[in-house]
């Protein structure tokens, strides 16, 4: 039997075309042996949630540098829950001020990575916290 692969979606919600970080992360996840679905820029939370379910991912990584994370990140979690996919973990990254962390954690974002976070620390987080589901 083949091993259970971790599947991750890397997505950029909202009006933000700065995808260097998301691309670097997608590549880093690939190098860690994960299967990464990258959906590109300018995605609505609805598109992201629908794609995450169709792809049966274990984790959604949201990247946002536009400042709209307070609205967009919680909305993705909400949509996943509404569609019976609340078990898909959601993490976020980008330019996120410290004072927004509590709001995002309360909304169900499991971890937040801001500039300075090392790639290794993100991969370690995934290995520790994400188990492929049956």
């Amino acid at each position: 039997m083949a091993e259970r692969k971790i599947r991750i979606m890397v997505a950029k919600p909202g009006l933000d075309g700065h995808d260097r970080g998301a691309r670097v992360l997608a590549r880093c996840f690939r190098d860690a042996g994960f299967e990464v679905i990258y959906t590109g820029c300018h995605q609505s939370p609805e598109q992201i949630a629908a794609a995450a379910i169709q792809e049966d991912v274990d984790l959604v990584g949201l990247s946002c540098l536009s400042g709209a994370h307070r609205t967009l990140f919680p909305r993705v979690v909400e949509l996943l829950k509404e569609q019976g996919a609340g078990d898909i973990a959601v993490i976020g990254g980008g330019i996120i001020p410290d004072q927004d962390f509590p709001l995002l954690y309360d909304a169900g974002i499991m971890a937040i990575f801001t500039p300075g976070a090392t790639l290794d620390s993100i991969v370690d987080w995934v290995r520790t916290n994400v188990k492929p589901r049956r």
Binding site: F29, R30, E35, V36, G40
Partner: peptide, 12 residues
């Protein structure tokens, strides 16, 4: 053993 699956970008 990892992969970047990017075909979907065109179909989102």
């Amino acid at each position: 053993g990892g992969a970047i699956l990017g075909d979907r970008i065109r179909m989102q």
